[in-house]
Nucleic acid binder design. Sequence first.
DNA 1: GCTTATTTTGCAACTAGTTGCATAAACGGG
DNA 2: CCCGTTTATGCAACTAGTTGCAAAATAAGC
Lengths: 196, 196
Amino acid sequence: MSLPHAILTALLEKPSSGLELTRRFDRSIGYFWSATHQQIYRELGKLEAEGHIRALPTEQPARGQKKSYEVLPAGRAELARWTSAAHDPKPLRDTMLLRLRAAAVVGTAGVEADLRRHLDLHRRQLAEYEEIERRDFPPGKDGPQDRLRHLVLRAGIDLETFWTRWLAHAVEEFAELPSAEQPVSGGPEPARPQSR
Amino acid sequence: MSLPHAILTALLEKPSSGLELTRRFDRSIGYFWSATHQQIYRELGKLEAEGHIRALPTEQPARGQKKSYEVLPAGRAELARWTSAAHDPKPLRDTMLLRLRAAAVVGTAGVEADLRRHLDLHRRQLAEYEEIERRDFPPGKDGPQDRLRHLVLRAGIDLETFWTRWLAHAVEEFAELPSAEQPVSGGPEPARPQSR
DNA sequence: GCTTATTTTGCAACTAGTTGCATAAACGGG
DNA sequence: CCCGTTTATGCAACTAGTTGCAAAATAAGC
């Protein structure tokens, strides 16, 4: 239930139309909360119906025409409430880890290539974050707002650093593993075809 | 679309009933792929209908009675296929990061307490993982299967280490921040109530 | 033996996110 | 001006996950 709050935050930073929001969700905000344009339009409708935002007055509100929104006091209050409320962290859910566990049972064939691909993807993401850090947070830029935003970026950088290290380690580990075309032996029996 | 494969993996490791699976999803597998019992029962039904698993023969298959499943060859093949196929990593989606970004606009009141709470939760999780590492992977236990499983556990440990460090840093940062009851100044104008 | 609690399985309805496509205006030539 | 492309908004249907509840078997008092 965080999308509306992501949108409120974005709109407070700068009133925008649906498409502008979509663009911003592809860049900055999307780095830790992604959303498609359909999600955004739907949510804008709801937020407007609830009186949390309103469309900026425009001439002819027709289709295919930009419609910009701004946050109303009620929306700001809701965002402040949500921000200060306690939320439990979501448990980890990662496909690659699941695949490795599966590989221990059905064999490691094919996984290594994707491990390398992920390593590459995470390296790129890390480079992108570091570029942003250089650009947006030069030494000295440390007002309260900068500190908060830098903290968030820092999480992204450290996370990607973790993944690149771990994936590099995983790739090494695979190199030392035996053949890798067959199920790894040593575990429970593989299920054999069985007639009934 | 990973739940069925998580279940297939679990069933290959050991044929189980729905409830046993649920228990295992609360412990080991759930550390990187959580699922509720309803999800599991529903998925067991689908997997059986598709011919990927079958119920172990039992006397009277009625309600409120354990029904255990085992993986059929087709299920094993499907799991092998899925494991070796390429999957893009899911983009990060984290509420706490979003809240910090929101806090930069609507004020930091209330966030610090939850930051500390999360720090505590992640420390506990880390301790739990390290305990498992001590117990299940003593030095010397490094067959191919052990290595793979240890690698997965290692990801969990390193991730929790990252979070505890980052959260500790965030808490420090907050301590240095001014008052924190008001929206942090220096950004875009707060939206003021406006009559139309 | 009857009742109450626990175990085990499951349905139904809901929320969140995704995918595919539609529609209308605006823009940019020829 | 007409026509294809881009911009901007949106509906409908689908997949995945969550929540609340219920029903059947079994175990546990008394």
